[in-house]
Nucleic acid binder design. Sequence first.
DNA 1: TGTGTTACCCACCAATAGGTAAGTAAGCAT
DNA 2: ATGCTTACTTACCTATTGGTGGGTAACACA
Lengths: 111, 111
Amino acid sequence: MTPETKQTSEEIITTELIIKKAVEVICGKWRMIIIHLLREKVLRYGEIKRGVPGISEKVLVHELKQLVELGMVEKESFGEVPPRVEYRLTDKGRTILPVIDLLREVGRAFI
Amino acid sequence: MTPETKQTSEEIITTELIIKKAVEVICGKWRMIIIHLLREKVLRYGEIKRGVPGISEKVLVHELKQLVELGMVEKESFGEVPPRVEYRLTDKGRTILPVIDLLREVGRAFI
DNA sequence: TGTGTTACCCACCAATAGGTAAGTAAGCAT
DNA sequence: ATGCTTACTTACCTATTGGTGGGTAACACA
């Protein structure tokens, strides 16, 4: 990234902004779990719900909405009854998969 | 990491636990900023405070306490007046530096 | 006597995150 | 008519997070 070892105070400020934004994007009790679930499969709403036991419907819906807003997840509704809605990770969403993998590695020490 | 591609449901549960724990450890509005600050220097309380502009004293004290509890930071008080207290990253704390670096990389796309 | 220094603590408040339980639409099968 | 299915919505509540503005100890120095 930055080839220089010394950072100007401007760069430090930007670095802090980026880190804070990234933390904001990553955090939430269930968000990483949902993304981890979507890692390899396109899933319907109900499948995600069953795959994340313990999450409330309200929070799941809210999280999915935010993930779509952030451009990390794509939502596709088929106009069927009963409804069928699929969620899939976007390329942008996939950029944080390495973060999840790293979290799995370092997280062990804190359990 | 796990050489197998298929995970048993037991492993999936453990994976979720680890990810949730890691997220818990990482999150908080200021935590990563504080750790990033301590990356290369041992700092006094006041230096951290000045290095994290915007944080309230209450939150800073609380964060530092939790970081010590988690074993990520060591606190050393010198019995002086006016008081002098130093904080330094432990090896355990250093394990999340790669996470911060990765967050810096992926975070750009979300600003 | 009074002021400055440093690293805190405390009471109180507001905003956000998350949970619970119920309800809804629209069609199909019974 | 009734119930089942699926993907939600809504009202209400609690808990956690973070912020504000004050106070404190203990000594040194003017």
